[in-house]
Design a binder for these strands. Structure first.
Lengths: 162, 162
DNA sequence: TATTGTTATACTCTATAACTATA
DNA sequence: TATAGTTATAGAGTATAACAATA
């Protein structure tokens, strides 16, 4: 399934956001897949290039679990795009160092990301486009800043003794 | 994980849409859970009330798989909110008939949906709000209308003989 | 032959738990 | 004690396959 359907006549914000984000996500995934990247790999590459960062730091930036980060970095290493290096400050931590090939690919993937966004917004009048981005930013900073912590956790605690 | 992080300097449409839709979805789920509904149950109730509809028709409207529809209707029946009735036109099909209690609850759930949308948009100036909805509608009708059909299927075909 | 609805289940995704090593 | 990273795996969500009844 993709999203909740428009339950009515008035514009349905849930449907609009779900649908647009879902479609954009599939387009982005398809475009990045052409150069062998996932959105997460792109995200990690770009932020690892900015400065020396550990896996945990990159996980926080990308809003990933640390275990998800492990598999993402595994993929980057297998593709020769990044390497784990021991941090000199903290011997528990690993710095993610982007290789030359990784840096080249990151430049290309950023172009792809920008292009996909351009294409998505292409149909909008310039002014409407600016207002859209401003409004979405306001939502992100405002009432839609943080998810409610659902009383029903994503997954029940593992039962003891198993 | 929630969404791809802002990879940027410029406003990142992917991040904005993913984040807002995700947060709104959790808020909607939490609000509807207070009256024992999921977003899907609400969606089915509302559209089943509009006119006589079969499971397949409701599944299409809600963009659900027919197997997902089965469990959604199961939940509605168990809660006494809807019933399956054989279609008089097509004996394969089942009409989803909303009970009186279901109709009452659907009215309440629609209020909840509207309220959650109101709250989300509350921070926006009236004009910006109108432009946002218009712009999102344009995206839905335009380049973000349909997802690319990913070359890699969601799930590989079941291997034969198993 | 195709379609509606159903059951059963396989697959993906991601978080939890438990662990090692360091702090 | 707490944290970084790792492995293994549980659980949720959802689509696929196969089927029965009917078109």
């Amino acid at each position: 399934m993709t999203a909740m359907a428009p339950a009515r006549t008035e514009p349905d914000l849930s449907f609009l956001l779900d649908h647009t984000s879902h479609v954009l996500r599939t387009r982005m995934a398809a475009a990045l897949a052409e150069i062998g990247l996932t959105a997460r790999m792109h995200c990690v590459l770009v932020h690892a290039l900015e400065e020396e960062r550990t896996q945990i730091q990159l996980a926080e930036i990308g809003d990933m679990d640390k275990t998800t980060m492990v598999v993402t970095v595994d993929a980057l290493e297998e593709s020769g795009l990044a390497e784990r290096r021991p941090s000199t400050r903290d011997r528990r931590a690993r710095i993610i160092a982007v290789t030359e090939e990784g840096a080249r690919l990151a430049a290309r993937s950023q172009e792809i990301v920008d292009r996909v966004h351009e294409e998505a917004l292409g149909a909008l009048p310039t002014e409407e486009r600016a207002v859209l981005l401003r409004a979405l930013n306001r939502l992100v900073d405002g009432h839609l800043a943080t998810p409610v912590d659902s009383s029903q956790p994503a997954r029940r605690a593992r039962q003891r003794g198993r």
